[in-house]
Design a protein around this nucleic acid. Structure first.
Lengths: 129, 129
DNA sequence: TATATATATGATTATATGCTCATATATTCA
DNA sequence: TGAATATATGAGCATATAATCATATATATA
């Protein structure tokens, strides 16, 4: 056997070297939908602007114009990113007249960012200096 | 005042409504470089293929061909993504003859994925059903 | 009602990214 | 040395995405 075949398609020009390890990894594999969902969650945090917005909101409630001021970005750019965060339920809104106030939706946000911060500090110690 | 000005540039057509809140958010803001670094970390996890690779490797050491078999993807696609993970130091390699074995670099990887999994389960309970 | 203002959003554009294909590199073995 | 094989990688393509610009929507006020 010189090629791995799955669903009638050739994927790899090389032989499968460790069939047992492959079986184990296959069996342990998470459902594709779950991993896709996870990737989607991470993607939300994978943008500096969105991180800055979440960071700013961690100090308390702010309106769109406040956020534009803090980030030094246009109202439109901020509003687009806020829409992304809103659709993902990472932030909530409260409307008072013309003004829309944003807050973090729950505690998971801060937790995830802290986790990644630790990852950054420990995992890459001295790599960037 | 009808526009927020920073560095001689107009960012927002609306007035800054809450100057104190803005000051506080500004003061608390993380260094831009740190947030950019964080976004970079998250970006690594923001792809289903890379998550699947890390997931597979969480069961133990696997060579490139093994990983191609587990994921049902070409050797080239897998190798490209492994290069990304390698450069980010999320995985390590061990070479034995022609075969390159990959392992997770440290425990942070699993921790971050678990964290996000919890986020997914708790934060979006019933939102997708 | 007409105007001003705070926010949201569609279209466009520039850039980033993931996969494929072809090929290079490294190693083993005859 | 030459052939085979495991892996790495550059180029190209298709798609995704973040910012911009213009404009729509909603609300307050004259």
């Amino acid at each position: 056997m010189t090629a791995f075949i799955k669903d009638d398609q050739e994927f790899c020009s090389c032989a499968v070297i460790h069939e047992e390890a492959v079986r184990i990894a296959r069996a342990a594999e998470a459902r594709p939908a779950e991993l896709a969902g996870l990737a989607e969650v991470f993607r939300l945090y994978a943008d500096p602007t969105r991180l800055r917005l979440l960071d700013a909101l961690s100090t308390g409630e702010l309106c769109v114009c406040d956020l534009a001021a803090v980030l030094g970005m246009t109202q439109s750019a901020v509003s687009h990113q806020l829409a992304t965060l809103r659709h993902a339920r990472l932030v909530r809104t409260r409307k008072d007249g013309k003004v829309v106030y944003y807050t973090l939706d729950d505690g998971h946000v801060g937790g995830i960012v802290e986790m990644a911060r630790a990852h950054l500090n420990e995992g890459r110690r001295g790599n960037h200096g």
